[in-house]
Design a protein around this nucleic acid. Sequence first.
RNA 1: GGGGCCGUAGUUAAGUCGGUUAUAACGCUGGCCUGUCACGCCAGAGGCCGCGAGUUCGAGUCUCGUCGGCCCCGCCA
Length: 589
Amino acid sequence: MGWWVRSHFCDELGIDNVDQQVCLMGWVQYRRDHGGLIFIDLRDRKGLTQVVFTPDFNAQALEEAHGLRSEYVMAIKGIVRERPKDMINPNLKTGEIEVAVTEFRLLNRSKTPPFIIEDRMDAAESLRLRYRYLDLRRPSMSGNIVFRSRAVQAVRDFLHENDFIEIETPILTKSPPEGARDFLVPSRLNQGQFYALPQSPQLFKQLLMCAGMDRYYQVVKCFRDEDLRSDRQPEFTQVDLEMSFADEEGVMSMSEGLIASLFKKVLDVDMETPFTRLSYAQAVAEYGLDKPDIRFDLKLRDVTHIVKGSNFRLFAEADLVKAMAVPGGGMLSRKDIDDYTDFVKIYGARGLAWIKIRENEWQSPIAKFLTEEERSGLSIELDLQEGDIVFFQAGLPEVVNTALGNLRVRLAERFDLIPRDVFAPVWVTDFPLLEWDEEEKRWVARHHPFTSPRDGHFDLLKTDPGQALARAYDLVLNGNEIGGGSIRIHNSRDQQRMFEVLGINESEADSKFGFLLQALEYGAPPHGGVAFGLDRLIMLMSGTSSIREVIAFPKTQKAACVMTEAPSQVSPGQLRELGLKLRDKPGQG
RNA sequence: GGGGCCGUAGUUAAGUCGGUUAUAACGCUGGCCUGUCACGCCAGAGGCCGCGAGUUCGAGUCUCGUCGGCCCCGCCA
């Protein structure tokens, strides 16, 4: 007999192949058994082809084909036939033809699958994850995986064309300062000591610049032991790159070229470059968030100066009062407004003040507090029209901005203000270098401790650290942070000064980053880079709403893999070898 | 650490005010069928109502706990 050789995939055959002898292999998608005639839709990764068992081609095969069931794996040999006009299936790429089976082999049987392998299937996600290998057979899921592969290929092509070289960096490495919680790996050969899995290859890529590699990139797994979200997994993939002799403009324009070519190649979307740029201060002022969705307008306005002396004490006493006018929002019901009030409370807001602009009247619980002067001030500042609703937040700037900024997005969805199939990238720049950590009572790096301050801002670190700006930039796409990077500090003295500001003393810096400080002393070139979150990028490009849809084997919200049941306990012997001992009751004490 | 939603045949869901034998669709099994394409028709099987307590004469339904899934806040340089 010998092994058959497949001649085509299941999406390939058409009118041009009529009368050819072909061999297809795949899974039984649907079986339509008419007794004396059986149709099988044969599926592989690429598509479906109808194969037909008829007595005039092979009566024996027809007899045996009665036993075929969903997801059985089979190989068929047959003749491509043109279908009569009235039997063409316009929904199928191969719908103009069918393959009349002359010979077939059952390659494997299948148990009845726990859910139907098709796109309109609606099984619980945990079930899909337990049987991920079945879930991935569905066209939409395999499509996502193929799409991701094409995207990565496009990224690699662009970077190689631009003189980047791909270099692997260690996975078993060292715990960096600050940042996220590390995943730790115990060392058998050095008992009591641990490797950390990289949160990013940050230090290695800087050292590669010191090594003269000039332009590095890597499609690389990174690990952060933090709580999960629909767009966050504990292990995720970055497109990581670093460039020598480049400033912000160099890195950002290279990034724009990369993203634009990616979108062009895999989605045929033209992105205008250079991308829009907003300073961090401007982003927060107008959008309330450092990841602004600029696909729609609906900006926030600072009205603190208008209501400074208001009779409404909440406004008068607040550090910051901001407002957002929603055109046509006057139709919102009391229930709607209550729901939005609950919504902003999630972000720490105490409440949500509002005014409906009616003909000759401002309808609002706070209208009675507002003077004529304040009304006209607000009217002008917010360009108020009849039928609008205005929402206010007053209080601490951080709460005001996040509450109103998130409400902005929510309302845009409600009022259908977000254009479809639009990709709106925006750079956010001029981030503060440091943030005050209230718990630890010290300044911490907003980006990471290797980020260079702006020229001249090093001196601010002594006098007014909060005012120092970083040479850092984030790339935001449709309200999602998809990348970020910075120009790095490239001399040892400056790096040490940065550590000092962060409260990392000389001996600690030396023991943790001696190698970097040393490397910076041997002619380190000026350099900077950026890292893109590949999973998130693919999620947005493929129009899915969860990162898990574009990852072959993702983890659940408790960071577990329901298929392999990782994490799991290990044997006492394994622990002994590693020199580890568990507490009597894990999770306590 | 916190807030919210969910858990009923293989799957997706319904299940009223706590009351007889827990429904439906799809899937599955058997039978019939030569032009279907999510084939059709006939018949049938299939349930620890997530798990554990409690209230009650009686719990899928009410209460508490617990396990699991999803969304969010905190967290994520």
